[in-house]
C-alpha cells in the first residue's frame, strides 16, 4: 500500500532521515520504534506531506505522494494523527471532527462517519460541544484519532498516541488500535512503549539517527538482542 524508497528528508540544512526504505501492506499494522530524536516524527511528517523529501520516492497505492500537493495527500487515504495531538483547542469537539472531514470526498459521508466515530468513542459524543482544549489528555487523544478517522482513511499514521497518558489509558489506547485494525484500516504507529506496541503490530522498524537499523515481524523484534537491550530493559 505504502512504499518509501531511499527517502532523505530534513529541516532546512539539517538532515533528519537518511535513505529510508519502508513498506506497509494493506491490512497490516506496522510499528516504528527508536530513541528520542531518531526521526520517527519526521518519518510520519514526510509521509503525510508536512515536510517534503529531498530525495527518494513515496508511493501510496501506486500514486506518487511527493508530486501530490500537501493538502491533497489526505485524499489519497492517508490520515495523520500528529505528535501531541494538535487539536484546535478553541474549537468544539464537533468542529474538530468536522475539520477532519473537510476534504470534498469526505463531506458527503460526514454524518455517517460522525456516527462511526461516536460509536467508537461514546465519550466524545457526550463532550461534543466542549472546547477541545479543555478536555483531558485521554479525551483529547480520542478526539485526535476521531478527527483523523473522519476523512475515511485507508492508512492511519499514529505518532505516539500513548504519550502523556496514565497507564490505564495507555492500555485503552492500544485496545483501540486493535479495534481500528479490526475495522480494516492499515496502521503505521510510532511508539515509545515498545513492549506494548510490539504486541499490537505485525511488523516493526527500528530507526536510529535517521536510518532504519533493523526490521522484522513483531516476534522477531521482541526476540532481537538490540531491541531487548536498548528498549525492553532486559
Amino acid at each position: 500500500m505504502l512504499e518509501l524508497r531511499s527517502v532523505d528528508a530534513g529541516y532546512g540544512s539539517f538532515q533528519a532521515l537518511f535513505d529510508v526504505n519502508l513498506d506497509v501492506k494493506a491490512g497490516e499494522a506496522v510499528g516504528v520504534i527508536g530513541p528520542n530524536g531518531a526521526g520517527k516524527t519526521t518519518l510520519m511528517r514526510v509521509i503525510s506531506g508536512l515536510i517534503r523529501p529531498s530525495r527518494g520516492s513515496i508511493r501510496m497505492e501506486g500514486v506518487d505522494v511527493v508530486a501530490t500537493p500537501a493538502h491533497r495527500i489526505v485524499s489519497l487515504g492517508i490520515a495523520h494523527v500528529p505528535e501531541n495531538r494538535r487539536l484546535f483547542p478553541q474549537l468544539s469537539v464537533d468542529d474538530n471532527l468536522k475539520m477532519g472531514a473537510f476534504m470534498k470526498e469526505a463531506r458527503g459521508t460526514y454524518a455517517k462517519r460522525l456516527d462511526f466515530v461516536f460509536e467508537l468513542f461514546p465519550r466524545l459524543k457526550e463532550r461534543r460541544h466542549q472546547m477541545a482544549g479543555t478536555m483531558s489528555g485521554g479525551e483529547q487523544q480520542m478526539c485526535a484519532i476521531g478527527r483523523a478517522l473522519m476523512s475515511n482513511p485507508k492508512l492511519l499514521l499514529l505518532d505516539e498516541p500513548s504519550a502523556g497518558l496514565a497507564p490505564v489509558v495507555v492500555q485503552q489506547v492500544f485496545e483501540l488500535v486493535k479495534r481500528i485494525r479490526a475495522s480494516g484500516l492499515t496502521v503505521l504507529i510510532v511508539e515509545q512503549n515498545v513492549q506494548q506496541v510490539l504486541h499490537v503490530v505485525d511488523r516493526a522498524y527500528l530507526i536510529e539517527a535517521g536510518t532504519i537499523r533493523s526490521s522484522g515481524t513483531a516476534a522477531e523484534m521482541l526476540a532481537s538482542d538490540t531491541v531487548k537491550e536498548a528498549y525492553l530493559g532486559v
Binding site: 503525510s48 508536512l50 489526505v74 500528529p82 484546535f88 474549537l91 475539520m99 476523512s151
Partner: peptide, 24 residues
Amino acid sequence: TFTGTAIRAISQDRQIMALMGVDT
C-alpha cells in the same frame, strides 16, 4: 460550513491545516 470552520481553525494551528486537506 466546512470552509467557515476551517477559517476559524487556521489561526489556532496553521501548520497542520494541510493534514485536514485544507489549502491554506
